[in-house]
Amino acid sequence: MNEPGRQINSDEFVALLVRHERRLRAFVATLLGRFEDIDEVVQNAWLVAWRKMDSFSCHSTNFDEEFVRWLCAIARFELLAYRRKNGPGMVLFDEELIENLADMRIEQADYFESRHRALLNCLRRLSPRDREMVFDRYGRGKSVQQMATTAGRSLDGIYKSLGRIRTALFACIDSSLKQEGC
């Protein structure tokens, strides 16, 4: 008979949700194939998780990782339900691809988390101007049109700048991981 695992109370639940919100959002975005509607799926997953909080029980020493896996399993079902409810057109991929992507995310979680840590460090190395630009686009959510108008530049120029910064950041991430031996 299995030993009873460690459970969580509501305060711990909230703390864990906050801590791992990014991972859940990234997981949902990956399966959804678009950035719109992430909130709806994430919100549903959280509500289901809240209701099923009593059923979560951790049997390993890596409490946080097990919680994230549990949360992602709920999100996966919620996404499939969302796809069935709204039609396949609202989700970019078929169910087989969704399953494959979900499995890869979970199996290679350490690798993707390493990349995220590297990204945070690489963001610091950007020039203030480039950092502001990338934050305007992805953090503050300004449209490329808005950015072009504000900066007095062409749309194409903004796209090229964002592409250049992205290339530089990806190179920085890859380089950081190589140094770590990943």
């Binding site: 919100e21 990014r22 959002r25 990234a26 975005a29 990956t30 950035f35 992507l101 890869m104 995310r105 290679q108 993707f112 990349r115 995220h116 990204l119 945070l120 963001l123 990338v134 934050f135 992805y138 953090g139 503050r140 959510g141 992205r166 950041l169 990806f170």
Partner: peptide
């Protein structure tokens, strides 16, 4: 997945 993490990661790296 790396790209999706990149987009979400930046968005999450500063307050909205």
């Amino acid at each position: 997945i790396e790209y999706m993490d990149y987009c979400i990661g930046i968005a999450h790296a500063l307050p909205g």
